[in-house]
Write a protein that binds this DNA or RNA. Sequence first.
DNA 1: GCCAACGTTGGC
DNA 2: GCCAACGTTGGC
Length: 158
Amino acid sequence: MKNYWLMKSEPDAFSIEDLERLNGKSEPWDGIRNYQARNFMRDEFKIGDQILFYHSNCSPPGVVGLAEVASDPYPDETAFDPKSKYFDPKSKRDSPRWILVDVRFVAKFPRTVTLAEMRETESLGEMRILQKGNRLSITPVSERDYEKIVELGNSSTS
DNA sequence: GCCAACGTTGGC
DNA sequence: GCCAACGTTGGC
């Protein structure tokens, strides 16, 4: 059984275009420093899981395309690097605190499914991203909501 | 830039 | 274990 996820990224830091430019090469999803998000990757991510790629902290925020999980979980190297902004002295090589997976580009939507549009879409009402105060950067998505967003992202009518 | 909502830290 | 202070996220 495939799982579905929504993963946020600030396009200034890493965008769907950055991922697309890798030409099918996978990229470590580094910098996750939240235990809940880490636990999803560590305990539930499987190779082939599908990802809604969400641009946050930009205008307009929304789902811009699709990616997929391309590796099993493994330690986040940036936590060991004192020069990285993600450095965490409490993460030791013999007991890594932060782990990640690689992701691979799947598709960029012809158009962005904006957060505002998602809020207006009745059937998406249960999505975690729409709940008040949600800040979690990785959230599970139901297959139904995933399919709906793919449909919206590929539709020409708004 | 503002600020609400959260998560983390650390003194006690 | 409590909780105030602080830092971060992220929409607006």
